[in-house]
Simulated scan of single mutants.
Amino acid sequence: MTRAYHPYRYQRNLSLATTRIEAVLADNPDRLAAEFDGLSDADLCSRREILNHVEALIADWKADGSCSFDAELVLDSVRDVEGWVSDISDEIGHTVTYVNFGPASGFSVGTAGEFIEGMYFREAYCDGKAGLEITFSCDGPSWNSMHTDRYAAVLLTASRTATCFRTESEGAVAVRWLHGDSALIAEPAIQSALAAADIMLTIFSSPAVDPTPLVAAIKFH
């Protein structure tokens, strides 16, 4: 069975987790503290802010047409090409797009089986500069148990994202991390994911390349 892309999986799993905690608290309101045990107030606040961003991003992605691309085969064939030069147009990113890297990307992070699975990108402005906002998402075994996990674990799993602002001026690329899971941002694999993002953004930027045959536009519900 093909794994659902992040935007679909996020909505489904968070809905299941919310249904579970509502049922638990309806039966025993005293369980609330236990559901969030291990998370400080500050960590709970920061995780909630990350999820607010993800949920708003997915809402915009849906409003823009739910555009999704599977890049696994493309990355496998081009990321080791010598002399690759990124050439990213300022004409992309007008709508939110999700690009799936897949488990074969090799972007392993954190615990066994966890990896950076893909990215969302869209145009953005930061400090008066135009660029692209890129949000990386993760997948891993913990997603399979979100319907039974304590809500603290659910929040930790769902907020394993990292968002940056990418801009380019006279050939110099600057990446500024805006928010996300600090441990994920510190992972070496995030640099590989940024390189993969440049490859895909360059492909999308080429007026001579229609990405649809290269990157299968498959939507999983």
Rank of each mutant, 00 (worst) to 15 (best):
I116K: 10
M1D: 04
L32P: 01
A104V: 04
S206L: 04
A34I: 02
E168C: 08
Y10N: 03
L39G: 07
L178Y: 01
T19H: 09
E123C: 09
L73M: 10
C138Y: 00
S142A: 15
D60M: 14
T157V: 01
E114Y: 06
S192G: 15
E22S: 14
A174I: 03
T167A: 09
P188Q: 12
T18Y: 06
R160K: 15
A124N: 12
D76M: 05
K62L: 13
D210M: 02
A26C: 05
G180V: 01
D64G: 10
A153D: 15
L51N: 13
D139E: 14
A217E: 11
A196C: 10
M146L: 15
A71Q: 05
L132H: 11
F107T: 05
S108I: 10
S182F: 04
L132R: 06
F101S: 09
F136P: 01
L25Y: 08
E55K: 05
V99S: 06
T18M: 11
A59Y: 04
P213I: 02
V209P: 06
E35C: 07
A17Q: 08
D127V: 07
W143S: 01
P188Y: 12
E123T: 11
S46N: 12
S15G: 14
L155Y: 01
P211Y: 03
L201P: 03
A71V: 08
G140I: 08
W61Y: 15
A4L: 14
T148W: 06
D41A: 15
V209L: 13
D90V: 03
L155T: 00
R9G: 00
G102V: 10
T167D: 13
M1G: 10
S40E: 05
A23R: 14
G118H: 01
I185D: 09
A124W: 08
C138G: 02
Y10C: 01
Y151V: 05
E82H: 10
I199V: 13
V85T: 14
V74E: 12
R79V: 06
G131S: 06
L16V: 01
I92R: 10
K62G: 03
E117V: 05
E82V: 10
T212E: 12
T202Q: 08
L132W: 11
A104C: 12
T212R: 13
A34Q: 14
N52K: 13
L155S: 01
P207L: 05
S182C: 03
G118S: 07
L51F: 02
V99F: 08
F69M: 09
N144K: 12
A174W: 02
A23M: 07
S108P: 00
E55W: 02
T19Q: 15
S137G: 02
A71Y: 07
G131D: 08
A186M: 06
Q191F: 07
L156C: 11
S86F: 05
S108D: 14
D70G: 07
A193Q: 08
R176I: 04
A59D: 13
C138K: 02
P213G: 07
R79L: 02
A195P: 00
D87I: 00
V24C: 03
E55Y: 02
R12A: 06
D80G: 04
A189I: 03
S205L: 01
I203E: 10
T95R: 15
L25F: 09
A217P: 05
V215F: 11
T148L: 10
S142R: 14
E91I: 04
S66Y: 11
R20P: 01
L156A: 13
R122Q: 12
E117C: 12
G171M: 04
G180D: 07
G106W: 10
L16D: 13
S40G: 15
F220Q: 03
I199Q: 12
C138P: 02
